[in-house]
Simulated assay, not measured.
Amino acid sequence: MITIYTTPSCSSCRKAKKWLDEHNVVYEERNLFNHRISNFDIDMMLEHAENGFDDIISTRSKIFKEKDLDVEDMSVSELKNFIIDNPSILKRPIIVDEKRMQVGYNDEEIRVFIPKKLRDFIMSSNIYKEDDSEYQTVLEQYFNNDAK
């Protein structure tokens, strides 16, 4: 199951959700301001992070600057608790499933979340990346055939 961590005012979050919806990708949305993030959530993110906390937190965020914090001086548990208490320090959106994670919205990278059957159909259609209309046509063909 794909989980996407979002905030209401995040335009990249809206783009990611729109893309997932257009590709009929099932996901669970967790609004960081309405859903208290847990140690489990953070552990799931860190399991897929190549650079640990650096991949998921924004040290340029207002709260980091106000508190004059240095991530290097904090223990893992201190940093997790800080994230739980201040979820706005997380980069957004964070899209994660059991195999992969994407931080932020990237039109190319988000394609890893397309179900394999749809990816195979797209690849067999020999469409060009630059031709968005042809890509949309292939998606419509897939979903129309899949609905039958």
Results as ranks from 00 to 15, higher is better:
residue 2 I to N: 02
residue 4 I to V: 13
residue 4 I to S: 02
residue 4 I to G: 02
residue 11 S to W: 02
residue 11 S to N: 13
residue 11 S to Q: 10
residue 12 S to C: 14
residue 12 S to H: 11
residue 13 C to N: 07
residue 13 C to T: 07
residue 14 R to N: 02
residue 15 K to H: 07
residue 17 K to C: 04
residue 18 K to M: 10
residue 21 D to R: 08
residue 23 H to S: 06
residue 23 H to E: 04
residue 23 H to N: 15
residue 25 V to D: 01
residue 25 V to L: 10
residue 26 V to P: 00
residue 26 V to E: 14
residue 26 V to Y: 03
residue 27 Y to H: 01
residue 27 Y to L: 03
residue 29 E to C: 11
residue 29 E to V: 12
residue 32 L to W: 09
residue 35 H to K: 15
residue 35 H to I: 15
residue 36 R to W: 10
residue 37 I to C: 04
residue 37 I to W: 01
residue 40 F to G: 02
residue 41 D to P: 00
residue 41 D to Y: 03
residue 41 D to Q: 03
residue 41 D to S: 03
residue 43 D to A: 07
residue 43 D to R: 03
residue 43 D to K: 07
residue 44 M to S: 15
residue 45 M to E: 09
residue 46 L to D: 10
residue 47 E to D: 15
residue 50 E to I: 12
residue 51 N to H: 15
residue 51 N to S: 04
residue 52 G to V: 11
residue 54 D to F: 11
residue 55 D to I: 07
residue 56 I to Q: 03
residue 56 I to Y: 04
residue 58 S to I: 08
residue 58 S to E: 08
residue 58 S to K: 09
residue 64 F to C: 04
residue 64 F to D: 03
residue 65 K to D: 01
residue 65 K to E: 05
residue 65 K to T: 04
residue 66 E to A: 05
residue 66 E to H: 03
residue 66 E to P: 00
residue 69 L to N: 04
residue 69 L to F: 06
residue 69 L to H: 05
residue 69 L to E: 07
residue 71 V to G: 04
residue 71 V to C: 05
residue 71 V to M: 13
residue 72 E to G: 07
residue 72 E to F: 03
residue 72 E to W: 03
residue 73 D to A: 14
residue 75 S to E: 02
residue 75 S to A: 05
residue 75 S to W: 14
residue 76 V to Y: 15
residue 76 V to N: 13
residue 78 E to G: 01
residue 78 E to I: 05
residue 82 F to H: 02
residue 83 I to W: 01
residue 85 D to W: 00
residue 86 N to M: 04
residue 87 P to T: 12
residue 88 S to G: 09
residue 91 K to I: 06
residue 93 P to M: 11
residue 96 V to I: 15
residue 97 D to I: 06
residue 99 K to S: 06
residue 102 Q to R: 05
residue 102 Q to E: 14
residue 103 V to M: 09
residue 103 V to Y: 09
residue 104 G to F: 15
residue 104 G to T: 12
residue 104 G to M: 13
residue 104 G to W: 15
residue 106 N to M: 08
residue 107 D to P: 12
residue 108 E to S: 09
residue 109 E to N: 08
residue 109 E to H: 07
residue 109 E to L: 13
residue 112 V to P: 00
residue 112 V to M: 15
residue 114 I to W: 15
residue 116 K to S: 11
residue 122 I to L: 14
residue 122 I to Y: 09
residue 122 I to P: 08
residue 122 I to E: 08
residue 123 M to F: 12
residue 124 S to G: 01
residue 124 S to E: 14
residue 126 N to P: 05
residue 128 Y to M: 09
residue 130 E to Y: 02
residue 131 D to P: 10
residue 133 S to G: 01
residue 133 S to V: 09
residue 135 Y to Q: 11
residue 136 Q to S: 11
residue 137 T to Q: 04
residue 137 T to Y: 12
residue 138 V to I: 15
residue 138 V to C: 07
residue 138 V to D: 11
residue 139 L to Q: 10
residue 140 E to I: 05
residue 141 Q to K: 08
residue 141 Q to E: 10
residue 142 Y to W: 13
residue 142 Y to R: 05
residue 142 Y to H: 08
residue 142 Y to V: 03
residue 143 F to Q: 00
residue 143 F to T: 01
residue 144 N to L: 12
residue 145 N to D: 10
residue 145 N to I: 10
residue 146 D to H: 14
residue 147 A to I: 08
residue 147 A to H: 09
residue 148 K to N: 13
